[in-house]
Amino acid sequence: MSVDVLSPETAPPRGTSTLQLQFRRFRANRLAMASVWLLALIVVSCFFGPYAFPFTGEDADFDFISAPALFQWPHLFGTDEFGRDLLVRVLEGGQVSLTIGFLGALVAGVIGVLYGAVAGFVGGRTDGLMMRTVEILYGFPYVILVILLSLLFGGGNLALFAAIVFTLWLTPAVIVRAQAQSLARREFIEAARAGGMTNTRIVLEHIVPNCMSVVIVYGSLLVPEVILSESFLSFLGIGIKEPQASWGNLISSGTSAMESDLRLLLLPGGLLALVLLCLNFIADGLRDAFDPNDR
């Protein structure tokens, strides 16, 4: 008896991975795609916009102190009380906030994913110990931790970054752990073991890639969270220090001048709000595209 070779017509013309399907569905979401483009525009103008001006955000122009927003070259949105150009300062502050936002989310995400994947996959006592640690860290007061860390690192951006990552890797760890736990019981993990794979390779090649859709969705929510907590800490005066600008400390100084000059608050605040809205719409679109219930 010979094996009947199945005809290729029984399957679609080319292999499409679930990830490809999910991105195809994401691209169909107009609001999310518009947000992607708007966010890209904001990122590009934050990083390249300041080069269009003949001064930096820290240069004071004593001819224009507290100039109003008259949309006249070179101070399009006017200057602050030290004669520094507001628009350039906001763009430069955006560099800091966006970098910390994306980098912080990436680092916190990677740590959280690996930690959660190991805990969920190994299970048993190791899992218990690892997750109890996470719960203890969850209970640690955030602001006190930041103050301690800035004492430890002598203040500055590194302390801020460490504090943000330290508090934000916990939730991805919990989410991925739950996912890894259910994956670890699937038969393809057993097949991988029968195929002689080590546990490390199983975590890296099977568990982590299969957690990816959850992680991408959560990661897109993590970025605004990091930006917000950077702004919050800078607002409190623990984060980015003057004269370096970030959206947080720009908003903070804008608030103190709110009575006399609203534009100092509105420009950085509006841009932050716009970025957060974009990221939330993107996260929403990703969640819709990755929802396993309507595959």
Binding site: E187, F188, E190, A192, A194, P209
Partner: peptide
């Protein structure tokens, strides 16, 4: 080697 009861669950979907 081993083959499994649920043939789809035995293959990594990614």
């Amino acid at each position: 080697q081993i083959i499994f009861q649920d043939p789809v669950a035995a293959l990594d979907p990614r």
